[in-house]
Amino acid sequence: MTPAVLIVDDDRFVRKLITTTLEDVSGFRLLEAEDGEAAIAVAVEHRPKLVFLDVDMPRLDGITALRRLREHEELAGMRVVMLTAGADYERDARAAGADEFLTKPFSPLDLLRLIEELG
C-alpha cells in the first residue's frame, strides 16, 4: 500500500492548494479531513506517514486532536507538521507532539521541501 499523507484544514481552499502542490511529486496517497474529529478517524483507518494539521478548526482544534493522536500506539512514528497562523501556538503544539511547523501563509516550496525530507 502506498504510504499516505493526511491534510487537515477546515478551509477547503487550503486543502486544495496543498493537495495540488503535492500531487504526483510526493509519491504519497493524499487524504483530507476538515476538522480534528475527522482527522482522528481518517488517521486511525489509514495510518498516514505524515499529517499536515491546522490549529484553528471547528469541532476539535488541531492541538487537542494532536494530543489524542499521540495516544494511539499504532500511530507511533507518524510525523505531524502543524499549520499555524503565528508563532504563538508553537509551544503548545510542540508539547502536544508536533514535529515541524509551517506558518500560514505557508510557502509551497517549504511544503515540498518538508515532504521530501520527512517522506
Binding site: 481552499f13 492548494l17 500560514k104 505557508f106 510557502s107 516550496l109
Partner: peptide, 15 residues
C-alpha cells in the same frame, strides 16, 4: 478566511 486565502495565494505567487 478570505483575507487568509488572499495572503496564501500571494505566497504561492511569490514562490
Amino acid at each position: 478566511e478570505s483575507d487568509a486565502q488572499a495572503q496564501q495565494l500571494e505566497r504561492y505567487a511569490t514562490d
